[in-house]
Design a protein around this nucleic acid. Structure first.
Lengths: 206, 206, 206, 206
DNA sequence: TCATAAACGAGACGGTACGTCGTGTCTTTAT
DNA sequence: ATAAAGACACGACGTACCGTCTCGTTTATGA
């Protein structure tokens, strides 16, 4: 996950592959128990059965570590095939809401976004590891809907990208705001409501 | 802004009113320069020309202080009268985006939201001081649109509230995600695009 | 013991006088148990029931702290009145040897002398706190011997000082070398032997 | 110098003989530049162009390494033949003072003596490598003086040994104290002064 | 006018975490 | 088997903030 290539035929003892996994798992466990602000790298290292230096050799700080630990959570997202575009979207949004309901995601995600407002490299890391990585769902969903004939083919690819970005901002933003700021559950009722507004609005746009 | 009533005819030296303003201003200045995570209360006190004890007598910690310092920023929001619902919304969204472009808001807002995921009292303070306080804009906007005949009167008030909440989550969420996560400007083009989708979707909903 | 004057009508909370004594006592206890090289300032602070910052506020590091802790040990030295110069000297040398037999002195003294070879300020601190402070014994002893008529009055004061320095280097050096390097006890037999050589040599010098 | 015998007809790659010398030289260089307390074994290994493991294979730690590095310095001492006992002693003492004026000796010697107060094996190593090894100078000096008729033959060999020890403690102790603690040069004037006192005292003793 | 009492500045205090460094061991590839 | 390289567990370093405390001082009220 971190940029460093894990060595080739280099001299010296190679980095432990197990340590990486243990550290990320320990980070998520600490997020659940303590939340972002009380999470300490010393504690994470202890939980992972690893020395602090080992942790610092791989990650430059708390923010980078948490981004990687949280990013893995979103890889669980799958685009379900529920037969219609609306149903597919609802399915993904519900999965997304379910992840945001987990404390390791709640605690960590907003914190690193907050930090990223003053750290360009961190913002880029978030974009790569989380945002762009999951934008695939929008792309896949549109392709499937076009195959079904629910959506027309895109004429202009620039325009298609702009629309994908808009959708992503609206969906991710609304769900995050609903669950973290308004602190209301993004349950089936709300998701159906939201999806209808979104799809109708988009349909008229084309 | 903080809960404690500042005394009435009590004996002893009264609390300095100037200190409050100085502290909040110093907090915003520190947010601009340092960001949330590097902001320290000792530094804020120094900037405000105040002892640390004075600060702690009024606020219980960093989070509460930052919520109050940031909340004041959003009180600048005004619902402009641009002649149509769409134009009014665009106006408010642009103002909102402008505030989110300011570093004292960017740094502070997401951080306290992140902290609030593990602190019920803090979440409530955010809701009161920021979210509910600005929801007035949605209410006013709808009332004005109904007066113009652009929207029908609401039959069910529960339903009206639910719609207001949905709108707020979508608008606030989308703008925040666009500016902070995607790190793209919420400029006039994007706002027009977004508003059209939102309004069309909502119209069909009624 | 440390240079800083303990405040005088200054603002702010005054430094705890008890902390100083507790820290020095804890330092000696740690020297006994652990020796100089395994002594850590964190451990000393814990033993003294004090925060590390409190310790660092008063002493700049391990060396300065140990000098002060050890210096107090030598203040116990008293010039006994045993009736003759030789007997007086034997008495002081035996006391000196007894102090050097205590582990808190053995561990600490040589270590700070070693460090002082690369730290001018530390060397000066040792001279002030230990060496010059105990040179009083030589001065007193000579005065008493002159009063008894055992030694003539000094004509040249520069010469007197040079002799005092020589005596001090020979006495302190020989006892230290005997106890720490040769690791043999400086017992009554050895002390009597040594004193006889020293006094005879000095007598012939006059 | 170190206890381990460097292999005979054993299988495998033989130990590099050059490495030993390089390590000891690097140790002395590091003592000059950094002093004992800032000297690190990693740095010594790097200076010697050797891996840390190679160093640890030969010495068990910093103290042992420094003892060996410093011990070599004292092997330069030679008993000069200046015609009289007093002149011979003065010559040796001046040489000894010259070695103690070199930073690699100053830094290292007292430090290992300090450490030896809590490490019996280290004390023994110092005695063997440095103290007993140089006591030859006292023995040789006495023999030469006896040959010249300046000193009588010793009747009791136990007594002779005791006297040699006393001389060694007084000489080594006084010079070390003069140069390291009093931080005054052991120059010709001082050495002549000191030697006269010592010899007169010893003469009367017989 | 003068005592009372709270707020104030200053800064020391006991803690906790930081990120770095040194130690001595271990694991790899190369000789 | 030894060598160079470097990762590893461990533990101390000295610093920075935290939130609390104890001072001397200031500024109001009400007796």
């Amino acid at each position: 996950m971190q940029s460093r290539t894990p060595a080739a035929g280099r001299p010296g003892r190679p980095r432990s592959a197990a340590a990486d996994a243990a550290i990320l798992a320990a980070t998520r466990a600490a997020l659940v128990e303590l939340g972002w602000s009380k999470l300490t790298l010393g504690d994470v290292a202890t939980r992972a059965g690893v020395a602090k230096t080992t942790l610092y050799r791989r990650w430059s700080g708390k923010n980078e570590l948490v981004v990687d630990a949280v990013a893995e959570l979103f890889d669980e997202l799958r685009l379900p095939d529920r037969g219609s575009l609306a149903a597919d979207i609802e399915g993904v949004v519900l999965q997304f809401a379910a992840i945001l309901a987990r404390p390791e995601a709640r605690s960590g995600l907003m914190a690193v976004v907050a930090e990223s407002t003053r750290d360009e490299a961190l913002r880029e890391r978030i974009r790569e590891s989380i945002v762009e990585r999951q934008k695939r769902l929008v792309i896949e969903g549109r392709a499937r809907a076009q195959a079904r004939g629910e959506l027309p083919e895109e004429a202009d690819s620039t325009d298609a990208a702009r629309t994908a970005d808009l959708i992503f901002d609206v969906v991710a933003g609304a769900v995050v705001h609903r669950t973290l700021v308004s602190a209301e559950p993004a349950d089936e009722t709300w998701v159906r409501d939201f999806t209808r507004v979104l799809l109708t609005g988009l349909a008229a746009r084309g």
